[in-house]
Design a protein around this nucleic acid. Structure first.
Lengths: 132, 132
DNA sequence: ACAATTGATACAATTATAGTATCATTTAGT
DNA sequence: ACTAAATGATACTATAATTGTATCAATTGT
């Protein structure tokens, strides 16, 4: 089971890389070489981050991506949310109507509790904090 | 993201159902009707539980499945382990060699911490406790 | 002998994840 | 104005995991 999928991972790497360097703006080509991430895939990811206002893009010849937000204000849960949807550990049970047993109650309570914990923990991490 | 997949879920339902009833032995046909789970799929699941010594089967005409263990001793983590493999939230990072940034350190620590918590919580639940 | 069961195992369908490709648009530099 | 290098938008493909189905053999109560 994965808590963090590949695209989230790549997004985090890219954001960390950009944050760390003073240069500010990077093209996909440059980033994909630096991070060792397939270019077209990374491109799609950065485009998504742009749409979500995490990055800001400039088009044209000397174009590229820069941070649109203070790294202190980009939370892990934001990025996970963007690529994996809102974290929901208990979805299988909520989605299922047929849950006639009481067990679901206790189990669901448990899952909700775990979910809250995970969200709290992940919500406490920012890109800035990942930079060390 | 799912913490519990369908087969685990079905397995839990079946185990709870069997534990709850005094009858003891049930055929797949009966169980699949009771639980509203596709028969061939449930069959595969029960066969797996049998191999793992959670259930015990008897073949032949009046055959079926009974519990092989005290419901107090069947833990959620056991069942998850059987159908989903050992829970490993941080696998994506461990599997990846290329993690040149320090961020992985903090992130991995976090994930390991979360993983421990989840395992502890799930490890505290048994089939018996799900019965109310 | 027969019918109802499980054992073993191979196969199929669906969904999610991971990644590619392409055409249109923008912009800097010449 | 032209060109090269970049992103925007979007459709497509590949791979893997999940969720099942199907089938033949062996067992057992009647």
């Amino acid at each position: 089971m994965k808590l963090i999928t590949r695209d989230t991972d790549y997004a985090l790497r890219a954001l960390c890389f950009i944050s760390r360097s003073s240069a500010g703006k990077f093209s996909v080509t440059k980033l994909s070489k630096e991070l060792g991430v397939p270019r077209p895939f990374l491109r799609k990811i950065l485009q998504t981050l742009n749409k979500q206002k995490i990055l800001e893009s400039t088009r044209g010849k000397a174009g590229g991506f820069i941070l649109a937000k203070d790294p202190k204000k980009i939370f892990l849960t934001d990025i996970i949310g963007i690529f994996q949807g809102r974290l929901k550990l208990n979805e299988c049970f909520l989605n299922r109507l047929i849950c006639p047993d009481q067990r679901t109650c206790l189990l669901r309570k448990m899952l909700v509790k775990i979910e809250r914990y995970v969200l709290k923990e992940l919500g406490s991490i920012t890109i800035a904090s990942l930079l060390k």
